[in-house]
């Protein structure tokens, strides 16, 4: 008779033990989550406050009136170089190859100040930090805009442009075809997504330009039609960059990484391009998500815009991390002189 009483008691005790250990884990996780939530709420409030105080984002205006020699641009360049170095160190710490590719959508003779002053500096900065750099902008500038871009509606790649870009990237890919990274992650370490797109989605977007295109995101939030498998059996090349890799206004199958994937079926071309991103965003994406895709080669797409995009108001308005960026004294001075006179 006793055992009939004891059995459920033992079962209850065991269940409650299990529950309590789960509860402890849950509580720790909940605490962590609520702390994170509190921080993000605080950050959001602070960002909102800053955005109200500092509304304007100057972009190319920074370079007008001999702005290229200004202390502000020097500061932004230094910040940019620090980002490049940080990213390079983090990528190389995984044993992956870090390659910088300067890709600017500017075609023809109308080269912007961002390109004119930005690109020489990017090459200098890369040389200083010892990063390999390829400047594709001269060859892009020599193309016909109506062929490789979607002008007059938009300056991003057309289908022909994506093929053209793939052709330009191909020699770089070939050069590192046998490069392997040294770091692997366990499934517990890997986050759910490696990119910022909503996972497992297929939708039509048009960016307000009446140029509808189909975006397919895989389960890992990357602009790819299939999921990455682990442990990996193929070389992984990560395309980290802005809209030049993301390729708005083109279906997945026509973007440059898909063109390359068809040419190299034994390589995973991982597209983590983000529209309106800059080095600050690339670092945060790399740290939080992209590095867990275990890339062997990282192609970082950058251009002159990435330097001026580091101005604090731009960051507060557009950064993916959503953390507040306070102005440096130089930035504050520039802002007040430009917008509050």
């Amino acid at each position: 008779m006793k055992k009939y009483f004891l059995t459920p008691l033992v079962a209850i005790a065991l269940l409650s033990t299990g529950c309590s250990s789960e509860e402890v884990t849950d509580k720790v996780q909940q605490k962590k989550l609520s702390e994170e939530l509190a921080v993000s709420k605080k950050n959001a409030a602070e960002v909102e406050k800053l955005n109200e105080l500092y509304k304007e984002t100057p972009d190319e205006r920074i370079l007008e009136n001999n702005g290229a020699n200004s202390p502000l641009y020097r500061e932004l360049k230094e910040r940019y170089k620090t980002h490049l170095l940080k990213l390079k160190q983090q990528v190389e710490a995984t044993g992956a190859k870090f390659v910088v590719v300067i890709i600017s959508p500017e075609v023809g003779a109308n080269i912007s100040l961002l390109t004119r002053y930005g690109h020489p500096y990017i090459k200098t900065a890369c040389n200083e930090i010892g990063a390999e750099v390829y400047d594709l902008s001269p060859v892009i500038a020599a193309q016909k805009p109506e062929k490789i871009t979607q002008v007059p509606r938009d300056g991003h790649w057309s289908k022909d442009g994506a093929i053209f870009l793939a052709n330009q990237l191909e020699p770089i890919i070939k050069k590192y075809i046998s490069h392997k990274s040294t770091v692997t992650y366990t499934s517990a370490e890997r986050p759910e997504t490696f990119g910022d797109l909503a996972p497992n989605t297929e939708e039509i977007l048009d960016g307000g330009k009446d140029l509808p295109y189909k975006v397919v995101a895989n389960a890992q939030g990357l602009r790819m039609d299939h999921d990455l498998k682990f442990p990996k059996t193929k070389q992984h090349i990560l395309f980290l960059g802005g809209s030049q890799f993301y390729s708005p206004f083109l279906d997945n199958e026509f973007i440059s990484t898909s063109v390359l994937a068809k040419r190299y079926p034994d390589i995973e071309m991982i597209n983590a391009g983000m529209w309106a991103g800059c080095t600050d965003d690339f670092i945060s994406l790399w740290e939080e998500k992209a590095k867990y895709s275990e890339p062997d080669v990282v192609l970082l797409q950058t251009n002159g815009t990435d330097i001026t995009d580091l101005f604090f108001t731009n960051r507060n308005h557009l950064s993916r991390s959503k953390k507040p960026y306070l102005p440096s004294p130089i930035e504050e001075k520039y802002f007040m002189e430009t917008y509050r006179k």
Binding site: E203, I204, L205, D206, D210, L211, P212, Y213, K214, D251
Partner: peptide, 13 residues
């Protein structure tokens, strides 16, 4: 709406 626009815009594909 966007799917309609997409079909007409990408008819060649």
């Amino acid at each position: 709406e966007k799917v309609v626009g997409y079909c007409y815009a990408s008819y060649e594909d």
